[in-house]
């Protein structure tokens, strides 16, 4: 089996595991990790897509992943901040 297919396959599994954890866990921190795992799944697929045998890697999916990472970081930071505001203290 090709490495890229394996990579895409792992991506789908990560995505689905992420949804599972997001839906069935109650703690905010677990939900956020779950969302980031879902994101990693999509990024896996994009990286696998970039591979073409014998050619240099396609730069477009790589750039999309970089953009996606920044967006994911932003969303996670904002959600964590919501969690802290809800907890009402903040000595962590």
């Amino acid at each position: 089996m090709d490495a890229e297919l394996l990579y895409a396959s792992a991506g789908f599994i990560l995505f689905v595991l992420g949804i599972w954890s997001l839906l069935l866990h109650r703690l905010l921190i677990r939900k956020l990790i779950a969302l980031n795992i879902m994101g990693s799944g999509v990024f896996h697929l994009l990286i696998a897509t970039a591979e073409h045998h014998g050619e240099p890697a396609d730069p477009v999916p790589h750039a999309l992943v970089l953009t996606g990472i920044v967006v994911a970081v932003s969303a996670t930071a904002l959600a964590l901040s919501f969690g802290r505001a809800l907890r009402g203290d903040g000595d962590d």
Binding site: M38, G39, T49
Partner: peptide, 13 residues
């Protein structure tokens, strides 16, 4: 949006 993005990645692939 993550679900949407997976669709986008499939389309690009």
């Amino acid at each position: 949006s993550m679900t949407y993005l997976l669709g986008v990645a499939l389309i690009y692939s």
